[in-house]
Design a protein around this nucleic acid. Structure first.
Length: 806
RNA sequence: GCGGGUAUGGUGGAAUUGGCAGACACGUCGGUCUUAGAAGCCGAUGCCGCGAGGCGUGAAGGUUCAAGUCCUUUUACCCGCACCA
């Protein structure tokens, strides 16, 4: 029986021996850096989802160590953030105290599952010795013009009283509390991630990410190729620049449209005859929630601007200007050239407001098509018509020709555009890294000197943020008031803190050298560990943490701090664990499974084995209490092999084969993260051993070794009981013997017209001719002949025979 | 609306990429052990049929000697983005 009391015994030994510590710079071993997304230490404690997410790399790490690699498998805590702060406010405890307590709980829980982390390298993003370097990177970004302060429209969550990045307000709701986001104009710190859009896209070619991860990042960055065109305000000096991906359709422009927030409205308010009406529209548009905007998408609204007209610089044609909220200030230039003939939105708008619709792209034969009910969108093989110099060209040719024309005439230019926006990098909260910048009335924004880092959070009693997005730090006069590092005169500190994603954007570098006081990590450590070899985490971080950290890392590479351009060579993802009814586990539904309970009742190895056996690692799967019992039963059977084991000289060709097959299968499946089938193969092997009265220990020893990464406590215990030398975790990974994988004779199914009818036994390496002969000579064939003749025989060596009768 | 994914027994899930569908496990049934139960061990278990046999991978077509796997059409659910100009 697997008695859970052995868990503690081995965990104590591993801890005392410090077995899983990785030494930087070891020359005679190949390095392997396995990374898991470090947890946020919430009060809820460890979740079975964490265990699944960590187990993938845990198995790989233990295997690689046995294969003689120098494995870095670290753990830490991403501890800044709102939940801790909210809890601290509610209970009136300092977030430092809450964080320390939660980290302690997590640590205990992680150790009770038996994870083989390097506990000497634990990091905590809220430790000043850590965030000193988060601030240092910020200063470098500032120095290189990638951190700037700007007054823009930002996403604001009224409930959390905090500004959110685009990535944190997907779908128009707050990442944290699901409240509706409002747009607010505010001056905040931004990081110029858009400068890195191309590098982030191109870098995807250098790494091994799952296709859907790659795709989501590509879509999120959203690069498009097109042109900017400078339209003229008719009779004025000003121009109205638009961005379009379809410069070929410029002859089809019948009106122009701008976002309600477009500055040109303010500038020309004295000449706009219906300015009041437009202001009214602007107000009502701002009031619409994200939800309403999407819901009402089909019903376009807008107001015509009386008093301003726009001249098409290519055709000279003058068209009306409209204000509409289907044009966004945040994308392109906030203004579009509307081509209702070939754009769905423009078409709907034109139909509703009775604006002309002109066809400029015809089908591939050059025939115009009816625009009665819908726009013509087939750009694949369309031919340009009604377009003067572009007539007769394909869409692709016309685009090129028009862009060249625009650049020649200096009325436009080739332009790439991105969906991704700059990163709003400020939170109006206490529990975050202070921004190391001083606001000086004389010198402007002045960075702190490097030697003055870390800029520590002041110890305060009141963490409640102000009503209108004011940071609680603003209330701490003694901290806010300081001297300008440049001129020495009175100045004030920046009171916003960094967002939660700051600390996690570089933590994988700190693991390489976690206690260094002179650099984020030493050059020696960075050069040795280079980059993460395999990084496992959730899909939910693909457009947040994974983009942010790739951005920071690429920046650090560009300024010569790190030796590789990409932080993660390979990315893998685990699926969700659902509740037993298939719904999501959630605190409110009360269906969360606590790993502690499983460890206490069934032992750590049961939890580990079950979670890996639950299904395909990348797919979600429902929790099953019976499944847990099944895993326990398997481990019990493994333990009971003790009574099967013998030193007697019993050998079997069949067992030799089974053993070599299972070693091969499990070794390969672990690498492919197919843990469920690896465990199934080991179960089958155990079933085979149970058929024997006695089993020589040589058939058990390698099984324990390949099972060790999954069930380290059980295998370590049985290893010791069977008297094998040393500890199993430091034994050498077993190799399989290729020559022993195949049996002497194999059974091959024979199909008649595609249905299996009988089986034949042939020598393992028989050729097609021999197999055909044995198959056709089998008397069973006669039962199916019935006067028919053999039309064809297909023989697939060592797999199948199909005899076609007719 | 666009992009991606999934669908296989009573259940969770396998299936060298076109070659025995249902590995492994749960559940159920039977046997064994026991005074009895539990645990263990052994066996059976896709569906219909007494049987020969037939039918079976969301649905409908197709290609092929052979299809869960490839093609065409389609349905449901999940995930991501969303007026992307």
């Amino acid at each position: 029986m697997y008695d859970k009391s052995i868990d503690k015994k081995w965990q104590k030994i591993w801890e005392e021996k410090n077995c899983f510590h990785a030494e930087t710079g070891e020359k005679n071993k190949e390095k392997f850096y396995a990374l898991i997304e470090f947890p946020y230490p919430s009060g809820a404690g460890l979740h079975v989802g964490h265990v699944r997410a960590f187990m993938g790399m845990e198995v790989l790490s233990r295997k690689k160590r046995m294969e003689g690699k120098n494995v870095l498998f670290p753990i830490g805590f991403d501890a800044f953030g709102l939940p801790t702060e909210n809890y601290a406010m509610k209970e009136n405890i300092h977030p430092r105290v809450v964080t320390d307590k939660n980290i302690e709980t997590f640590t205990k829980q992680l150790k009770s599952v038996g994870f083989s982390f390097d506990w000497d390298r634990v990091i905590d993003t809220t430790d000043p010795n850590y965030y000193k370097w988060t601030q240092w990177i910020f200063l470098k970004l500032f120095e290189h013009g990638l951190a700037y302060k700007d007054k823009t429209y930002v996403n604001y969550c009224p409930k959390c009283r905090v500004i959110l990045a685009n990535e944190e307000s997907q779908g128009g709701v707050c990442d944290r509390c699901d409240s509706e986001i409002v747009q607010m104009e505010k001056e905040v710190w931004m990081l110029k991630i858009t400068d890195y859009a191309d590098k982030l896209l191109d870098g995807l070619d250098e790494v091994n990410f799952p296709p859907r991860v790659r795709l989501e990042q590509e879509n999120w960055i959203g690069r498009s190729y097109g042109a900017e065109i400078d339209f003229k305000l008719f009779g004025k000096e000003d121009i109205l620049t638009v961005y379009t991906t379809r410069p070929d359709t410029v002859y089809g422009v019948t009106y122009m449209a701008i976002a309600p927030e477009h500055p040109i409205l303010e500038k020309y308010k004295n000449e706009i005859l219906n300015y009041d009406e437009i202001l009214e529209y602007k107000k009502s548009a701002a009031k619409k929630t994200e939800f309403e905007r999407v819901e009402l998408a089909k019903n376009k609204t807008g107001v015509k601007v009386d008093g301003l007209e726009i001249e098409n610089p290519v055709t000279g044609k003058v068209v009306p200007l409209w204000v509409t909220d289907y044009v966004m200030m945040g994308y392109g230039t906030g203004a579009i050239m509307a081509v209702p003939g070939h754009d769905t939105r423009d078409y709907e708008f034109a139909k509703k407001f009775g604006i002309d619709i002109i066809q400029v792209v015809a089908n591939k034969k050059g025939e115009e098509v009816s625009l009665e009910n819908e726009p013509y969108l087939d750009i694949e093989d369309g031919i340009l018509v009604n377009s003067d110099i572009l007539n007769g060209l394909s869409v692709k040719e016309a685009k090129e020709k028009m862009i060249n024309f625009l650049e020649e005439k200096n009325i436009g230019r080739r332009k790439k555009n991105y969906h991704m926006k700059d990163w709003a990098f400020a939170r109006q909260r206490y529990w975050g890294e202070p921004v190391p910048i001083v606001k000086c009335p004389h010198c402007g924004l002045v960075p702190l000197k490097e030697e003055d880092l870390p800029l520590e959070l002041p110890d305060v009693k009141d963490f409640v943020p102000g009503e209108d997005g004011e940071s609680p730090l603003a209330k701490v006069d003694s901290w806010v008031n300081t001297k300008c590092p440049k001129c020495g005169k009175d100045a004030k500190r920046e009171t916003d803190t960094m967002p939660q994603w700051a600390g996690s954007s570089w933590y994988f570098l700190r693991y390489m050298d976690p206690k260094n006081n002179d650099a984020l990590a030493s050059k020696e450590a960075l050069d040795y560990w280079k980059q993460v070899d395999c990084y496992n985490g959730g899909m939910e971080h693909v457009t947040r943490h994974l983009i942010y950290s790739r951005f920071w890392h690429r920046f650090l590479y560009d300024i010569g701090v790190v030796p590789t351009s990409e932080p993660y060579a390979k990315r893998t993802t685990q699926g969700l664990i659902l509740a037993s009814d298939g719904s999501k586990m959630s605190k409110s539904k009360g269906n969360v499974v606590n790993p502690d309970d499983i460890v206490k009742e069934y032992g750590a190895d049961t939890l580990r084995t079950y979670i890996l056996f639950i299904g395909d690692y990348g797919m979600s799967a429902p929790w099953s209490e019976n499944g847990v019992k099944g895993a326990k039963k398997f481990l019990d059977r493994v333990m009971r092999m003790e009574s099967l084991a013998t030193d007697e000289d019993i050998h079997s060709k069949e067992l030799d084969r089974e053993l070599n097959v299972v070693i091969k299968k499990v070794s390969e499946d672990y690498e492919d993260m197919k843990y469920n089938t690896a465990i199934a193969a080991m179960m089958s092997y155990v079933n085979v051993l149970y058929k024997q009265d006695k089993v020589n220990k040589k058939y058990i020893k390698p099984l324990l070794q390949i099972l060790n990464p999954v069930a380290p406590h059980v295998t370590e215990e049985l290893w010791q009981r069977l008297g094998f030398e040393g500890y199993i975790f430091e034994s050498k990974w077993p190799e399989y013997d290729e020559s022993k994988l195949v049996a002497d004779e194999i059974e091959i199914p024979v199909q008649i017209n595609g249905t299996v009818r009988y089986r034949i036994t042939v020598p393992a390496n028989s050729d097609e001719k021999t197999i055909e002969k044995i198959a056709t000579e089998n008397p069973a064939l006669q039962n199916y002949m019935n006067g028919k003749e053999i039309k064809k025989i297909i023989v697939i060596k060592s797999k199948i025979v199909n005899i076609v009768l007719g």
